[in-house]
Simulated scan of single mutants.
Amino acid sequence: METVQNRQQAAPGTLTAFARFVLCGGGVGLASSLAVAALASRIPWALANALVTAVSTLLATELHARFTFGASGRATRRQHAQSAGSAAAAYAVTCTAMLALQQLVAAPGAALEQAVYLTASALTGVARFAMLRLVVFARSRSQAAPAVRTALALHTSAARTGVPAGRAELCRAA
């Protein structure tokens, strides 16, 4: 009985979960950027990015299930599949960013390539956090739908008023 109660711990708050997400995802992301750079010297960059993205997504999903979002154990196949979907979108963004860099700069240095890759990864990381928190690792499916509706309502309201979503939320809280 005690084990069941320990496994059904409360989900961490948004700020705690985000800090854990940055720690886990950022660590995996930094290791991934080094791995992509190392592999890209031997195989085409897009293939290196695809391989590293696949491996890092599996690792990060497990870390997020166990540590970031306080799930009760390993990630399920459904959670891995949903996480892979958001990772595929992140892959497309990082590839697009790198292709754009190569179109804009004839011979970008390694530091510039890393900066562009990490910036694109960070932007997609924020979107992935929202997806993982609100959908993939939501405590129940019934909790996920209202949270997504609330996020969409904030975004829609902000778009109508011209106030950025984060600021609209702050204005309501004040």
Rank of each mutant, 00 (worst) to 15 (best):
S41K: 10
E62K: 12
S41H: 10
V22T: 12
G70T: 12
A50M: 01
A38L: 07
A75G: 09
W45D: 04
G26L: 03
G26W: 00
L59H: 08
Q79G: 09
G73S: 11
L47G: 05
L23A: 15
Q79L: 03
S33V: 05
F21P: 04
L63W: 11
H64F: 13
A81G: 04
A65V: 01
S33I: 10
P44Q: 02
F67G: 02
C24F: 05
V22N: 00
G25I: 03
A88L: 15
A46G: 00
L39E: 02
T61P: 09
L63N: 05
A46W: 12
L30I: 14
A46S: 01
S72N: 15
A37H: 10
S41R: 12
G29C: 09
S72D: 15
R77M: 03
A75L: 03
A48T: 03
L34E: 00
V22S: 02
W45F: 11
T57R: 06
I43W: 01
A40G: 06
A65E: 02
G73Y: 07
R42G: 01
S56N: 06
A89I: 15
R74E: 07
A48Y: 03
A65S: 07
L51M: 13
L47P: 01
P44Y: 04
A60G: 09
G70S: 14
A50N: 02
A38F: 03
A90Q: 10
A31M: 07
S83W: 08
A46D: 00
H80R: 13
L39C: 09
A37G: 13
A50E: 01
F69H: 06
F21V: 04
Q82I: 00
V52T: 09
A54N: 06
F21Q: 10
F21A: 01
G25D: 13
G73E: 12
T76L: 14
Q82M: 11
S83L: 00
V55H: 07
L39R: 05
E62W: 15
F69E: 13
S33F: 08
A31Q: 02
H64R: 05
L51R: 04
Q82P: 07
A87Y: 08
L30P: 04
R66M: 10
I43L: 09
A84L: 14
V55G: 14
S86L: 12
P44S: 06
A89N: 00
Q82C: 02
G70E: 10
R66H: 09
F69W: 08
A37I: 07
A81V: 02
G29R: 02
L51N: 05
L59P: 08
G26D: 05
A87M: 00
G73W: 07
A65K: 06
R66Q: 15
R77Y: 11
G85Y: 10
A81E: 00
T76Y: 10
V22K: 00
P44R: 06
A35Q: 05
G85T: 12
S56E: 10
V28E: 00
A88T: 14
T53P: 02
L30V: 12
F21G: 05
T68K: 09
A48N: 00
S32A: 03
Q82D: 14
F21H: 04
V28G: 03
F21Y: 13
V52R: 02
A65R: 02
A89H: 11
R77D: 14
S72H: 11
L34R: 01
H64S: 13
A81Q: 06
R74D: 10
L47H: 04
S72C: 10
